[in-house]
């Protein structure tokens, strides 16, 4: 049950999906809080460092997801799905990869280009190398990209959740169920 079947997602894909979901959700919450929240200097600094380190955890999970997606075909679309709906779903799913990659890339560049050198620290004492030297203009631009893409990502998550709920409650199909943990749907369409 670790691998995907024609009908449902396997354990590996589900674990990666929900890990990424939890991480992205936490990162958006942390990001908004650390930028707009009323924090003291120390707490704000710690929130930024946690956000930077966790960003690289998101990168690791997304790389694993991408590799697993290549290695293990996703389940077939449900019978009866309209072609337009299929294309829309595919575009949104690919859009997630693009948006999250843009978040990671702009975040990493922003940290690298910052005039104040402060690279991300990972567990085990590993320090993430900078992609570029200090560059205030690049930092300002990547910061703007990071902010705009975060809003697009929130919108995409809204669409994704709305679509999953629509499939479950309006269409009454198994699109949501087959991604839920511990759900084994062996019914043939």
């Amino acid at each position: 049950m670790l691998r995907n079947t024609r009908e449902s997602w396997g354990g590996v894909a589900k674990t990666l999906h929900w890990s990424a979901a939890a991480l992205v959700f936490a990162m958006l919450g942390l990001g908004l809080t650390m930028v707009h929240g009323d924090l003291g200097a120390g707490a704000k600094f710690e929130a930024y460092q946690l956000h930077k380190s966790t960003g690289f955890l998101v990168l690791a999970v997304m790389l694993m997801r991408g590799l697993w997606r290549i290695a293990n075909s996703p389940p077939a679309p449900l019978a009866g799905t309209r072609p337009g709906e299929r294309r829309l779903a595919l575009a949104l799913h690919r859009g997630f990869y693009v948006l999250i990659a843009a978040m990671i890339g702009s975040g990493w560049l922003m940290v690298s280009a910052s005039p104040l050198p402060l690279p991300a620290h990972l567990p085990g004492g590993f320090v993430v190398p900078n992609l570029t030297g200090p560059n205030a203009l690049l930092e300002a631009r990547t910061k703007l990209i990071h902010e705009v893409v975060s809003k697009l990502l929130i919108a995409a998550i809204g669409l994704h959740v709305a679509a999953a709920l629509k499939h479950h409650f309006a269409d009454k199909d198994t699109v949501l169920l087959r991604m839920l943990p511990f759900h084994h749907d062996d019914r043939r369409p």
């Binding site: 003291g40 200097a41 120390g42 707490a43 600094f45 710690e46 460092q49 104040l116 050198p117 402060l118």
Partner: peptide, 15 residues
């Protein structure tokens, strides 16, 4: 001491 061990360490650094 700025009430954050992480920020303290950063202030102690060569930066």
């Amino acid at each position: 001491d700025v009430n954050s061990a992480t920020l303290d360490d950063y202030l102690r650094s060569e930066v």
